[in-house]
């Protein structure tokens, strides 16, 4: 699953650790999600959407990242 988490975080000048703190997860988890290696659960995706004031589909889409 592709996502715009890294872009959105960079636009706000947040570090991975700061975003992790806001979402209540570890920095490693944010890193894995940004790299597309781990797909977040629906509750975590909703939490991210609320944090960025966006709809879930504006952050995540199910298009598989090209290798």
């Amino acid at each position: 699953m592709k996502n715009r988490l890294k872009v959105l975080r960079a636009e706000r000048d947040w570090t991975q650790a700061q975003l992790a703190s806001a979402l209540g997860v570890s920095r490693q988890t944010i890193n894995a999600i940004e790299k597309g290696k781990f797909d977040p659960s629906l509750p975590l995706a909703f939490k991210a959407a609320r944090l960025f004031n966006l709809a879930i589909e504006e952050i995540f889409n199910d298009e598989v990242e090209a290798l």
Binding site: W14, Q18, L19, S21, A22, G24, V25, S26
Partner: peptide, 16 residues
């Protein structure tokens, strides 16, 4: 940004 301050992370504190 205080809300996002990693040093005050409730996740990290709880995990520790």
């Amino acid at each position: 940004m205080t809300k996002l301050d990693c040093e005050n992370s409730s996740y990290q504190t709880k995990n520790n």
